[in-house]
Design a protein around this nucleic acid. Structure first.
Length: 701
DNA sequence: CCGGGGGTAT
DNA sequence: ATACCCC
């Protein structure tokens, strides 16, 4: 049936794969009996790729809106790693040296970007926001996210009256023909609306703009997302896949083909994507081995069956610095201390306990053949690890330094001369304390109504049946910073809204819920007018008790001060000077203006403004709402929680947050917990207390 | 092929 | 522990 659905290059691999990859099935396909007799639809996936515009620069422009008006470059060492579009107009490009950049654009304003803290935090806010709509989100670097929206699209489609005309939002790749009628691809069309709404959400709530690509796999979604550059989106139709691939200027442009691979391919005489497409597989197999050869060839064809793998919490935290020259043990020691101090603090905020420490160096070499890093790692004695999580940060650093130096001496003979250009410290093997092994019951059962329902988990592989349900609880926040993003999110829509009927009208969602209620509580130094136009996130920070507290000189109760959720907050220093406030207003207006670019390539009155409400289908009116929010497990009594010692609170928070999406199933690692039982709890509790978030604990009395 | 991250595969 | 990949 429906061969109609697959017309092209999309491989059989994907087809075959759909027997294995439950995610590839449409939800409509029930789990049949023991044997598969339900013909699986090819189950083409629908994948979104989001790519934020000049991410670091955007973050800096939010922190200091005055920067929006000038050519801005983000500087790391002697390199401009990225720059805003004003600077790009003047010829500045990514990864340009400072000297070249200043030559091109003498007025270039540079902001140091070596400390990634702000970028990392904003990055996770974006991922969290996306995850609140659908848990299948995979990060790629700080500024890109993949999302598998196959099910979401399927659901919308089911609710769409067939007679409804579906149009595309944004551009369609290579689609010149005057006819818009591409509703031959309803799923992609619906997905383009989803992408558009998600970009809007990112803009409204976080103040960030970006591009999106809509396609049937990750490779294609990523490649197509960049075709219309700032703040636009593009859908790739299957019939245009080979165009897209053919247009790539070289094999290096194919994600997954790195420097080394490209060189090896070149040795085989392959330069262009087409070369690779047409090359005999057997030759490739000799060079790269079976699976890899097939993979490479598939990539050249635009075929990619790799799943969107939910990223979850990071598996390692590291901190590094590079420099021209370091040649004495003393310098090394001091640098290691410096790096460890910040790393341990970050680790502490994360809440997990690292089991492994690694030291990496890069030596200078005449034949400046770059990289070549060396590393040594060692288990972290448990007592030290505990000091990190418990907050004895200085102690932990003091004890880790000798360990690091030992590793250093395993690599460097300090008796001889040496010349380092980089040092990196890294924690890995991050363990969530609590439930699984040791005192699981002890603390957790404290809150559990029905004692001890959770067994160790084993977890179960995620099978097709469980897949759908898993959606709801799976996407928990994983790090402190990620959690924080939600703490201040007054869940705009009811958290557990069943996906089908989001009928509650636009649910208190957006409509100026700049709420009046909020503006009375504004900090004294904030102009209400300005406040209104700020991104939601910033509004929340300003209203947060933490920020208010910070206004009044010294800090309050130790328990509050110690809490990572609080201490983490350095609400925008930008409002300390009133000048910035005015500029914020201008900037926000500008932002709005720049936003109305996206429109169908050739459809309707060109340039439809973002303001005008288009006709469109039912589907469009369905509010896109987060499928859950993730504060406490539902069985936690907030009152009880608030009475606990702060480090116990921290431990619990950590435990709750570390839950990884079930999909990940790290083969050898500690099993992720089965969320099924939890899900029920969460759901049940969700109804009774929609205000089940941390906000109230911090409410100023 | 820098920069300060992060990932997986071997 | 290294090599490769991504941004």
């Amino acid at each position: 049936m429906d061969n109609s659905d697959d017309e092209m290059e999309e491989d059989e691999t994907e087809w075959k794969n759909s027997f294995v990859d439950s995610a590839a099935f449409s939800p409509a396909a029930p789990v049949s009996g023991p044997s598969i007799n339900v013909t699986p639809r090819p189950a083409r996936r629908v994948i979104l790729h989001f790519d934020l515009d000049c991410f670091y620069a955007q973050v800096e422009m939010i922190r200091n809106p005055a920067l929006r008006l000038v050519p801005l470059g983000i500087q790391q060492k002697y390199i401009v790693v990225t720059c805003n579009y004003v600077a790009r107009e003047r010829g500045v490009t990514k990864l340009m040296s400072i000297t070249d950049a200043k030559e091109k654009c003498p007025e270039l304003v540079l902001v140091k970007g070596e400390d990634l803290t702000h970028y990392r935090e904003m990055s996770y806010k974006v991922t969290d926001l996306l995850m609140s709509y659908c848990p299948l989100v995979e990060r790629l670097g700080f500024d890109e996210n993949f999302m598998d929206v196959t099910e979401m699209v399927e659901r919308r489609l089911d609710q769409t009256v067939e007679s409804d005309r579906i149009s595309f939002k944004g551009h369609i790749y290579n689609h010149f023909s005057a006819d818009v009628k591409a509703s031959d691809h309803p799923r992609l069309a619906v997905a383009s609306h989803v992408a558009s709404e998600l970009r809007e959400a990112i803009h409204n709530k976080l103040g960030l703009t970006g591009c999106a690509g809509i396609a049937t796999n990750k490779l294609l979604a990523k490649l197509v997302s960049g075709t219309f550059k700032p703040n636009q989106q593009t859908t790739l139709l299957p019939e245009n896949v080979s165009d897209l691939m053919g247009c790539l200027s070289g094999l290096r442009k194919v994600p997954g083909v790195g420097h080394q691979t490209a060189k090896r391919l070149q040795a085989l005489g392959l330069i262009s994507v087409k070369d690779l497409q047409l090359h005999p597989l057997n030759d490739l197999i000799r060079e790269f081995g079976g699976p890899n050869a097939q993979r490479l060839k598939n990539l050249a064809l635009g075929v990619d069956d790799s799943p969107v793998t939910p990223t979850g919490a990071p598996q390692s935290l590291s901190d590094e610095d590079s420099f021209k020259k370091m040649s004495s043990t003393k310098e090394v020691l001091e640098k290691i201390q410096e790096l460890l101090s910040s790393l341990v603090e970050r680790m502490h905020k994360d809440g997990r306990q690292p089991q492994t420490f690694r030291l990496t160096i890069r030596r200078y070499t005449v034949t400046n053949k770059w990289f070549s890093r060396e590393s040594r790692q060692h288990p972290i004695p448990s007592p030290i690890g505990q000091k990190i999580t418990s907050g004895s940060i200085e102690d932990a650093v003091v004890q880790l330094v000798p360990l690091a130096m030992k590793l250093f001496h395993k690599m460097v003979d300090s008796g001889a001369a040496f010349h380092l250009t980089l040092i990196n410290v890294c924690f890995s093997n991050l363990q969530t304390r609590g439930a699984a092994v040791s005192g699981k019951g002890a603390i957790t059962s404290f809150f559990t109504q029905s004692t001890s329902p959770r067994k160790t988990q084993d977890d179960s592989s995620q099978s097709a049946e469980s897949h759908y349900l898993d959606h709801h609880q799976v996407g928990t926040c994983n790090t402190m910073t990620r959690h924080r993003a939600h703490v201040f999110t007054k869940s705009s829509s009811s958290s557990e809204a069943t996906l089908q009927e989001g009928n509650q009208k636009a649910s208190g969602c957006n409509p100026d819920e700049t709420d009046n209620t909020a503006s009375d509580r504004l900090p004294p130094n904030v102009d209400p007018e300005v406040f209104k136009i700020l991104p939601e996130e910033i509004q929340k920070e300003l209203l947060s008790p933490a920020y208010l507290n910070s206004l009044s000189s010294t800090l309050t109760s130790p328990s509050v001060a110690e809490d990572p959720l609080i201490s983490n907050i350095k609400a925008s220093q930008m409002f300390t000077d009133s000048q910035n406030i005015k500029e914020t207003k201008e900037v926000a207006e500008k932002l709005d203006a720049s936003d109305r670019a996206t429109t169908v390539n050739h459809q309707g009155p060109a340039g439809t403004s973002g303001v005008q409400r288009e006709s469109i289908t039912k589907e469009e009116k369905l509010p896109l709402h987060p499928s859950f929010d993730c504060e406490f497990p539902g069985n936690v009594d907030p009152g009880v929680f608030s009475e606990l010692p702060s480090d116990v609170q921290r431990e619990l928070m950590s435990e709750w947050k570390q839950q990884k999406p079930v999909l990940k199933t790290p083969s050898s690692r500690k099993p992720g917990r089965s969320l099924t039982a939890k899900d029920k709890d969460r759901k049940a509790a969700g109804k009774s207390s929609q205000t089940n978030n941390l906000f109230k604990y911090f409410k100023p009395s």
